[in-house]
């Protein structure tokens, strides 16, 4: 763009960088270290937490953007997690030769195909879901909650119809089993992959949101939908696009989550959705950065307390949510609203 050379900076108002929430994660990790005691256990727990946080982030990011942009909270998001995982499984099972092969390249190829299938499948489903379930109830929160819940029920039942109700094994490719040992520390390969995927999604998302026109439109739309339309943009199409992308991300997250657990049931989405909701509340509805941070915090909390006091692990996340909401009632990074 022309004339964008940065002007003098002498009397500019300073950009406030709100970094305070970022420090919570390392503080939790450091507090946990003496409590856990053994450094190797601590490293394992922390890596596990980062992996879990990455998966939760992948699932939650789409949901929070959909909410921010269109004020729609899709309680049926959990169904996309499960359906994505089932689709990936459907691809992985016939590829068992590749999955069990010793060649990492074949392992990864099988995984890639499975992920693509899962994302295309859940993306298409998201498109249909938006059209049939969500579109008629824009702006009506009560009906939205009810109807997306209804969509969740029907989608879960359809999983039973298509794939059957019993627990299925999720084949984790051979090359991703086991751990890499660095000194005393054992780093599980799949967890590292999950972290890499989560970080990639986060970085790509930041780049899209900050560097592309579509991203600018999404950010502007989250803030003030009407004004974006008054500038001549058809935000509906944009929203359908975000809905599809968010659903596809749920499919990706679901695939990773199922691989992590190595088993699969129709209820797999429900287990993690509770954490997803906590994450987007903590992060601030509509904020991708807040969502990332929230996911890491929730996962750290879950893993440390899961080790230290397994019985109250879930309750600890509720306490975390309560504490953060008392500090910042709109979440860590509230999105500016009209």
């Amino acid at each position: 763009m022309a004339t964008t050379s940065s002007p003098a900076t002498t009397d500019l108002p300073r950009t406030p960088r709100d970094l305070l929430p970022v420090f919570i994660a390392p503080i939790i990790a450091l507090v946990a270290l003496p409590l856990v005691g053994s450094p190797t256990t601590w490293v394992t727990l922390t890596i596990a937490a980062l992996a879990m946080g990455s998966m939760i982030f992948v699932i939650a990011s789409g949901l929070t953007l959909i909410f921010g942009l269109m004020d729609v909270l899709n309680f049926g998001h959990g169904a996309f997690i499960a359906i994505g995982a089932y689709m990936a499984m459907t691809v992985l099972v016939p590829l068992s030769g590749w999955v069990q092969s010793d060649a990492l390249s074949l392992n990864l190829a099988a995984l890639l195909l499975a992920v693509i299938a899962a994302m295309i499948g859940t993306g298409a489903l998201g498109w249909a879901f938006e059209r049939v379930i969500v579109r008629p109830v824009y702006g009506q929160h009560l009906k939205q909650i009810l109807i997306t819940m209804g969509g969740l029920i029907v989608a879960e039942q359809l999983i039973h119809v298509v794939w059957g109700g019993d627990q299925k094994p999720m084949p984790l490719p051979n090359g991703l089993r086991g751990a890499i040992t660095v000194g005393d520390f054992a780093l599980e390969k799949f967890r590292l992959l999950a972290v890499a995927v989560g970080l990639t999604v986060f970085i790509v998302m930041q780049l899209v949101l900050n560097r592309t026109k579509v991203g600018l439109l999404i950010r502007a739309g989250v803030e003030n939908r009407e004004m974006v339309e008054a500038l001549g943009y058809r935000i509906r199409q944009l929203f359908v696009g975000v809905f599809i992308a968010g659903s596809a991300l749920a499919g990706l997250g679901g695939t990773l989550w199922a691989l992590y657990r190595e088993t699969l049931t129709a209820a797999i989405g429900g287990d993690i959705m509770v954490l997803v909701f906590i994450v987007i509340i903590i992060g601030g509805l509509g904020s991708v950065g807040g969502c990332f941070l929230g996911a890491i915090l929730v996962a750290l909390m879950a893993n440390y307390t899961g080790y230290l006091a397994p019985k109250i692990a879930v309750a600890s996340n509720i306490l975390l949510m309560v504490a953060i909401l008392m500090w910042r009632p709109q979440g860590l990074y509230p999105v500016a609203r009209r």
Binding site: L73, Q144, I145
Partner: peptide, 8 residues
């Protein structure tokens, strides 16, 4: 808002 309450 209603949605927050539902999630919490």
């Amino acid at each position: 808002r209603a949605i927050f309450y539902a999630m919490i």
